[in-house]
Amino acid sequence: MATDAALRRLLRLHRTEIAVAVDSAFPLLHALADHDVVPEDKFQETLHLKEKEGCPQAFHALLSWLLTQDSTAILDFWRVLFKDYNLERYGRLQPILDSFPKDVDLSQPRKGRKPPAVPKALVPPPRLPTKRKASEEARAAAPAALTPRGTASPGSQLKAKPPKKPESSAEQQRLPLGNGIQTMSASVQRAVAMSSGDVPGARGAVEGILIQQVFESGGSKKCIQVGGEFYTPSKFEDSGSGKNKARSSSGPKPLVRAKGAQGAAPGGGEARLGQQGSVPAPLALPSDPQLHQKNEDECAVCRDGGELICCDGCPRAFHLACLSPPLREIPSGTWRCSSCLQATVQEVQPRAEEPRPQEPPVETPLPPGLRSAGEEVRGPPGEPLAGMDTTLVYKHLPAPPSAAPLPGLDSSALHPLLCVGPEGQQNLAPGARCGVCGDGTDVLRCTHCAAAFHWRCHFPAGTSRPGTGLRCRSCSGDVTPAPVEGVLAPSPARLAPGPAKDDTASHEPALH
């Protein structure tokens, strides 16, 4: 009773807030009518008042009428009001819900409408889902798969039609296919003929059939049928067999079959498995989609049935006599038709004709302190090069084509190399640097090759510096006499390219 009084008091307290929050009759008014909170006449009256005075006034009048009803109607109103779709449509209802007392429970059932309790003993237990329907569909599909699609060729003596089998029958139906081979029951999904010589313990000319048996419980189990008994694959494991010639990621696949039913060829011909030897223990289905393919039931050349050999690369099948050149017997292992072999060759040939990528240039590290003349020119003028003790990398590039010797140069053309002071002394051009340390401070000019250098860098042994005729380390061993002091540049003949010694390969005349 306390809860009923509290709900009535809360409705009177929030009546105006609810009326202002509800700006549309749908969905709240319609939901109240659906849950029998508002009768039909009051529903029509509220809609009429909404058209006349507006939605807030109409709902305020409806809530005032609701306060005169019993506690069950008020409880049902609060339940409908706080439904998710009403809270989404009328956003101003959320503060009312947040301020609702926590001790007021809106989930209690309506009085007088409590459903009768059902004894637990009368409640049926839930049924577990079964796979009976899938099993029945598999039974119905198996006879259809064994139905012949056409008439065999005159040369083929193997013609068999499976008798119709009602689904209610649980007995196995067997077809006489000759040579002791028996087909599987209607619940078998796949059958492959297997030679009895590969099964340990088999006697006589009995041949087993590799099947997948579907049981009534819905589970499946792969086994071997020899005669009327089934054997699990673990009985046929043979770890010492060295003649297993397995197909790549293979499961067994029928390579020879008669049109209309699988079996042995007439005249004692023995149908073979995809792999010879003992049956392997793992009978998992292969991951290669080509091995799941269903080959055609007629020859791809003459479009006739009979004894066919199936290609492992495509769905086509052929007569042995229709092949070019014809085959006398079934080859062992994987067999592919000429079209598949030709496609494989065409895929391999473009790969062989692809040009080989060019090898990157060989990189040879230079000892610290040495650099090529090109690196000396590329440096920024007026700045010493940083990191001189790091190992430089010199790339061996292809030799350029031989060019004509340089033409003779006048001494005026070499004027930018040297600057003559007032006393006739050779001065260095701006930006000249030593080729060893890279520093341009207090550098000297070689009178023979006009290269800038430090005496301490080229002659670290402490050799005394002569007063005139300074030469760098590369030119100090040259027998050519030094030019007379005061000459602007060496003779043009000295600039012609010539053979250089091994220790002077990195010091070429550089223009500054």
Score class of each variant (00 low, 15 high):
Leu128Trp: 14
Arg149Pro: 08
Phe26Asn: 03
Pro252Ile: 09
Glu17Pro: 01
Val256Met: 09
Leu87Arg: 12
Thr46Gly: 00
Lys165Cys: 04
Lys114Ser: 07
Phe236Ser: 06
Ala134Phe: 13
Leu75Asp: 01
Phe77His: 05
Lys164Pro: 15
Gln57Trp: 00
Arg8Ser: 03
Gln212Cys: 10
Gly240Arg: 10
Leu87Asp: 04
Gly240Val: 09
Met194Pro: 05
Pro109Asn: 00
Ser64Pro: 07
Ser64Thr: 04
Ser220Tyr: 01
Ala5Arg: 15
Phe100Tyr: 01
His30Val: 00
Ala193Gly: 07
Ala121Cys: 14
Asp34Met: 00
Thr46Leu: 00
Asp36Met: 00
Ser185Pro: 03
Gly251Glu: 14
Ser99Gln: 01
Ala31His: 00
Lys235Phe: 07
Gly263Arg: 07
Ser64Ile: 01
Met184Trp: 03
Gly251Asp: 13
Ser241Cys: 11
Pro148Gly: 03
Leu93Val: 02
Gly260Ile: 14
Asp238Ala: 12
Lys159Ala: 04
Gln213Met: 00
Ala141Phe: 15
Ala264Glu: 08
Asn179Ala: 15
Ala5Gln: 07
Ser187Leu: 02
Ile96Ala: 01
Phe59His: 03
Pro143Phe: 13
Ala25Pro: 07
Val80Phe: 05
Gly269Ile: 11
Lys161Pro: 06
Ala193Phe: 03
Ala58Asn: 00
Ser239Tyr: 14
Thr147Met: 13
Thr147Phe: 15
Gln262Pro: 12
Leu106Ala: 01
Leu93Trp: 02
Leu32Tyr: 03
Trp65Phe: 02
Arg110Lys: 13
Ala5Glu: 14
Ala61His: 13
Ser135Asn: 07
Gly208Pro: 03
Leu63Pro: 03
Lys83Tyr: 01
Ala193Ser: 08
Gln262Lys: 10
Ala25Phe: 05
Gln262His: 07
Ala121Val: 06
Val118Tyr: 14
Pro125Trp: 14
Trp65His: 05
Phe43Val: 03
Asp23Ala: 00
Gln172Gly: 05
Arg174Tyr: 11
Ser169Ile: 13
Ala19Gln: 00
Lys102Ala: 00
Leu97Glu: 00
Ser107Phe: 07
Arg9Ile: 02
Ser64Lys: 00
Lys131Thr: 00
Arg257Ala: 09
Gly201Tyr: 12
Ser196Cys: 13
Gly251Phe: 13
Gln157Leu: 13
Ala264Gly: 13
Ala258Arg: 01
Leu93Pro: 02
Glu171Phe: 15
Ala33Lys: 00
Glu171Asp: 10
Leu87Ala: 02
Leu7Thr: 13
Tyr90Phe: 01
Glu229Phe: 06
Arg8Thr: 01
Asp41Arg: 02
Pro116Leu: 11
Ala2Pro: 15
Gly150Trp: 15
Pro254Tyr: 13
Arg89Leu: 01
Leu66Gly: 01
Thr183Ile: 03
Gly204Glu: 08
Phe215Tyr: 05
Leu175Val: 05
Leu128Gly: 15
Lys222Ala: 09
Gln189Lys: 09
Val188Asp: 07
